Amino acid sequence: MRIGVPREIKNHEYRVGLTPESVAELVAHGHEVAVQAGAGDGIGAGDDVYRAAGAEIAPDARAVFADAEMIVKVKEPQAAERAMLRDDHILFTYLHLAPDADQTRDLVKSGAVCIAYETVTDTNGGLPLLKPMSQVAGRMSVQAGATALEKAHGGRGVLLGGVPGVHPAKVTVIGGGVVGFNAAQMAVGLHADVTILDKSSSALERLSNHFESSAKVVFASGAAVAEHVAQSDLVIGAVLVPGAAAPQLVTREMLSTMQSGAVLVDVAIDQGGCFETSKPTTHADPTYVVDGVVHYCVANMPGAVARTSTYALNNVTLPFAIALANKGWKRALTDDAHLRNGLNVAHGKVTCAPVADVLGYEFVPAPEVIA
Rank of each mutant, 00 (worst) to 15 (best):
residue 280 P to H: 12
residue 285 D to N: 12
residue 312 A to W: 11
residue 272 G to S: 13
residue 286 P to E: 00
residue 320 F to H: 15
residue 284 A to C: 03
residue 308 T to P: 01
residue 310 T to H: 14
residue 244 A to L: 02
residue 286 P to W: 02
residue 277 T to S: 15
residue 265 V to G: 00
residue 257 T to V: 00
residue 299 A to M: 10
residue 287 T to V: 14
residue 273 G to W: 05
residue 253 E to W: 08
residue 320 F to P: 02
residue 306 A to G: 06
residue 243 G to L: 05
residue 306 A to T: 13
residue 252 R to F: 04
residue 253 E to Y: 03
residue 305 V to G: 12
residue 300 N to C: 07
residue 241 V to I: 15
residue 240 L to F: 14
residue 319 P to W: 10
residue 286 P to Q: 10
residue 237 G to S: 11
residue 322 I to Y: 08
residue 317 T to M: 13
residue 244 A to T: 07
residue 267 V to Q: 09
residue 271 Q to P: 11
residue 259 Q to W: 00
residue 260 S to W: 00
residue 262 A to Y: 01
residue 302 P to L: 13
residue 301 M to A: 13
residue 269 I to T: 05
residue 294 V to G: 06
residue 308 T to D: 14
residue 286 P to T: 00
residue 272 G to A: 12
residue 267 V to T: 13
residue 238 A to D: 15
residue 315 N to F: 01
residue 266 D to N: 02
residue 289 V to P: 03
residue 270 D to E: 15
residue 241 V to N: 13
residue 249 L to P: 10
residue 284 A to R: 13
residue 278 S to R: 08
residue 302 P to F: 08
residue 318 L to Y: 01
residue 290 V to E: 14
residue 301 M to R: 03
residue 306 A to M: 05
residue 285 D to M: 05
residue 305 V to L: 14
residue 247 P to H: 05
residue 313 L to C: 09
residue 277 T to A: 11
residue 317 T to P: 05
residue 311 Y to R: 14
residue 248 Q to V: 10
residue 288 Y to A: 11
residue 301 M to K: 07
residue 261 G to D: 07
residue 236 I to H: 13
residue 273 G to M: 09
residue 271 Q to Y: 06
residue 315 N to H: 13
residue 279 K to S: 14
residue 312 A to K: 15
residue 297 C to W: 04
residue 321 A to W: 07
residue 264 L to V: 08
residue 312 A to S: 15
residue 278 S to G: 10
residue 235 V to I: 13
residue 236 I to D: 11
residue 246 A to G: 07
residue 316 V to F: 09
